[in-house]
């Protein structure tokens, strides 16, 4: 019964082959799924009201927006802000820094929550597992100011704890917080420390969905732990990993302003200055709303291209992707 209710009618191809009018099928499908559509309504209203109605604010990027003139009175300037942005002498440097940092994040940060949650998944003592889980998730709640403050206490050359140890061993100190070459390492390790535990939460939820019977069956077949991991666990969370990866690409150009800004010094700015910090610096003497909005749009367009591209690729490989 359900077979004929769902599978055939759901494929447009089947409809077309049946030769009936498309609109007829559309109406039939909508009537059939009336409950589903009803359930969608609150959400659709939500997105229209709170996301799409305010969307006119995007026009700010093409105006010289002034708060007291508003969106309708501020003068239109076309692509002026984009032109200024692209012709800035630092544009190349900012772009490079932003992209390199984002790549580092994807390479070194993104896989770690997966690894950590798989490690935790292998723990058998439920109490120990809960204990570890609770502790690794704590740093997420420590603000960047405090994180950077703690790293200062550890890494500074003036009585920094790690540098003192380093000095005892090697007789030298390393200016981790000053040297440009250490900047990205510090940023990524701070991100890892703060957010990896938090990142495991979603994978643990995905892992909780794995059917235990599969493991038992595999064990009876003589599969070891690595094979179980490879053939049961990973496939079970693959689609979650892919979805998260694709969504992460949407924020590719976001570097985490507060974090970076707190770590910037005159001697590492050449590798540390990113779009987010640049916009902030510009805005310090003049709240350049329109200019910031233009930079934001640029970042979003790149994010959109990446998301759509990655999603297209995922679908090519038979994954569900985002939509």
């Amino acid at each position: 019964m359900k077979q004929e209710m769902y599978a055939p009618a759901g494929t447009p191809v089947a409809n077309a082959r049946a030769g009936k009018s498309k609109i007829g099928y559309l109406i039939k499908d909508i009537v059939r799924d009336k409950w589903l559509y009803l359930m969608l309504l609150p959400g659709i209203f939500y997105f229209i009201i709170f996301k799409y109605i305010p969307m006119y604010g995007v026009t700010m990027a093409f105006q010289d927006y002034k708060p007291y003139l508003g969106f309708f009175e501020s003068p239109w300037v076309g692509f002026k802000h984009f032109e200024r942005f692209f012709s800035e002498p630092q544009f190349g440097m900012l772009f490079r820094n932003t992209v390199i940092l984002a790549m580092y994040n994807l390479l070194f940060f993104f896989p770690l929550p997966i690894v950590l949650s798989l490690m935790m998944n292998e723990l058998r003592h439920a109490k120990f597992k809960n204990f570890v889980q609770t502790l690794v998730y704590i740093p997420h709640f420590v603000s960047w100011v405090v994180v950077v403050g703690i790293f200062y206490i550890l890494f500074t050359t003036e009585n920094g704890i790690l540098n003192e140890i380093l000095y005892q061993i090697t007789g030298q100190k390393i200016a981790f917080l000053l040297e440009a070459e250490w900047f990205r390492t510090m940023i990524i390790s701070q991100s890892i420390w703060k957010e990896v535990g938090w990142g495991t939460v979603i994978f643990l939820a995905a892992l909780a969905g794995v059917d235990l019977q599969q493991y038992e069956a595999a064990r009876i077949d003589g599969a070891g732990r690595w094979r179980q991991l490879w053939h049961i666990t990973l496939p079970a969370i693959r689609s979650t990993i892919i979805i998260l990866f694709i969504l992460r690409l949407g924020n590719f150009m976001d570097s985490g302003f507060e974090h970076i800004y707190l770590m910037l010094t005159p001697t590492n700015r050449e590798v540390g200055d990113v779009f987010d910090t640049y916009v902030y610096t510009i805005g310090m003497t003049q709240a350049q709303y329109s200019y910031s909005a233009a930079v934001g749009i640029f970042k979003s367009v790149i994010g959109l291209i990446l998301v759509l591209g990655a999603n297209w690729l995922a679908k090519k490989f038979g994954e569900e992707g985002i939509y």
Partner: peptide, 12 residues
């Protein structure tokens, strides 16, 4: 003078 002056904040 302190060698880390370009990162240290006034509170420290």
């Amino acid at each position: 003078i302190n060698q880390d002056f370009s990162v240290v904040d006034s509170a420290t």
